Amino acid sequence: MLSPAEQLPARLPRGLLRDLPKVCLHDHLDGALRPATVVELAAAAGHRLPVDEPGALGRWMRTSAGSGSLERYLETFEHTVAVMQTPEALVRCAREYVEDLVADGVVHAEVRWAPEQHTAGGLSMAEAVEAVRLGLSEGVLAAEDAGHIVSVTQILCAMRQGDRSLEVARLVVDNRDRGVVAFDLAGPEDGFPPSRHRAALELLADELIPVTLHAGEAAGVASIRDALATGRALRLGHGVRIAEDIDIDLAGDVAVVDLGRTAQWVRDRGIALEVCPTSNLQTGAVAAFGDRPDQHPVDMLYRTGFTVTISPDNRLMSGTTVTDELALLVVHFGYGLEDLERLQRNAAEAAFLPLEDRSALDGLITEGFEGLYA
C-alpha cells in the first residue's frame, strides 16, 4: 500500500509540504528520539532493547504502538525513557530534536516531557529541565547559524498516575522565564482525572501559567469537561473525542450540526485541539468513528469550526512528522493550501507565546505561503 506521501497530488508534492512553515504544539521529547540514538544510548547505559539495529527498532516501535491500545502504546516509552537519564543524553536528545524540526520545516514547537521520569540516574528534576534547555538552545543556535528560523519551548508534564504534580507545577513556575511555557498531565487518562492534581492546578492558576491537558484521547467527553472545569485547560491534548458530543443530521444536501454543551464551549471559545491523526488511529482514540485515516473525525471538527491544530505526538512510535500528518489530510480529505495555512495559523494563535511573538510567527506563515496560490 502506498503511503500518503506517495499518493500526494502533483500540485502538493511532499517537498512543498515539508518546506511550508509549520507550528507544532503536541510533540513528546521521549517519543521523538532517532532509532540510532536510542541504540547508541542504550549500549552506553547497559539497557537491553528488544532489537538493537536502528531500522528494526523503528519498526518494532511502530508495530507495538499500532496495537490499538493506549496502554500498549505507552509501554514503548520504557526504552526511550531508560536511555534519557543523564545530562549528556538529555542534551543530545533535545539538540537532535531541534535538528529534526528544521528538517520537517517547523518554525515553532512546544516540546513536552515529564521530568519525574528522568531522575533514575540521580538527576533532580530541575537538573533534567536545565539539560533539556541547554540541548534545545544548542539546536536553535546551530539552526540559526545555518540560516533557519526555529523557536522551541518546553511544556512540563506530570504523570496522572503519580503524586509529583505539585513539584512539577512549581518547576514550571520557577522556569517560566527560562523557556518553560506551560503544564500538562500525561499518562493513563481513564481513571486518573485532573481532580487528583487539584493542588498543582490551583497553583498554576494562581501564577497565571497556561495549562494544556491530555483529554479526549483514552477517555471521552466527561474527561474533556473535567480538563476544562478542574484544569482550566486553554488547549486540549488530542481532544478528538469531543466529536462524540456532536450530532450531524443530513437533510438533503444540508448538514444540520447539533453540538452538546461541552462541544459548544470548546468550539465557541476557540479552545485549540492538539490533534495527532496517526497516533489517534494507533491508540484507538477514534475507534468509535472507524480505524481508517479517512474515518478520523479531524475533518468534521475542522469543517464545523473547531480550532484544529495538527501535530505528530510521538515521531518515533508513530513513524511520522508534521509533514506526514499534513500529507494524510491532503490525501484523505482533499485539503489544499488554504486549509493547510489555516491549520498553521490556528496553531500560531494557540501557541503559549506572548502576543508579539505570535504575531511574528503569523508573519512567517504568511511569508511561507505567499505566492503559492497561483
Rank of each mutant, 00 (worst) to 15 (best):
A243F: 07
R269I: 02
D258I: 00
R292C: 01
A272L: 10
V266W: 08
N280S: 14
D299M: 05
D268P: 00
A251G: 00
G239L: 01
C276R: 06
D291K: 06
G252I: 02
G284C: 02
S279Y: 03
P293R: 00
Q282N: 05
S279N: 01
I242M: 06
A288Y: 02
R292K: 14
G290M: 01
P293T: 03
Q264P: 01
L301S: 14
R261C: 03
V240M: 02
H296I: 03
D299K: 03
E244P: 01
L281V: 07
E274P: 03
D253A: 11
D249E: 15
L234D: 11
Q264I: 01
G252W: 08
L234W: 11
F289G: 06
T307N: 13
T278G: 08
T309D: 08
D299A: 12
G270H: 06
A287V: 05
G237F: 07
C276P: 07
A233F: 12
H296K: 06
Y302M: 07
D249M: 09
A287N: 05
V298P: 05
R261Y: 03
G270E: 10
D299E: 12
D258P: 00
L236M: 05
G284V: 02
R292Y: 03
D258R: 10
D291S: 15
L234E: 15
V275M: 11
E244V: 02
T283M: 10
Q295W: 03
R241H: 09
T278Y: 00
G260I: 06
A287W: 02
P297T: 04
A285F: 00
V266T: 11
P277C: 04
V254S: 09
R269G: 09
G260M: 06
A243Q: 14
D294G: 02
H238D: 04
A263C: 13
C276T: 11
I242K: 08
Q264D: 15
L301N: 13
Q282A: 06
N280T: 07
R292W: 05
Q282P: 00
P293H: 05
T304F: 09
A287S: 12
F289E: 09
L281P: 00
T309M: 08
G270V: 01
D294T: 08
V257Q: 13
Q295M: 04
G252M: 04
P277D: 11
F306I: 10
D268E: 15
W265P: 03
I246D: 03
T278M: 05
L236T: 04
V298N: 01
A287H: 10
L250F: 09
T283A: 12
Q282I: 05
Q264F: 04
D247H: 08
V308K: 06
L259P: 07
L259K: 09
A263F: 14
I248E: 14
L234A: 15
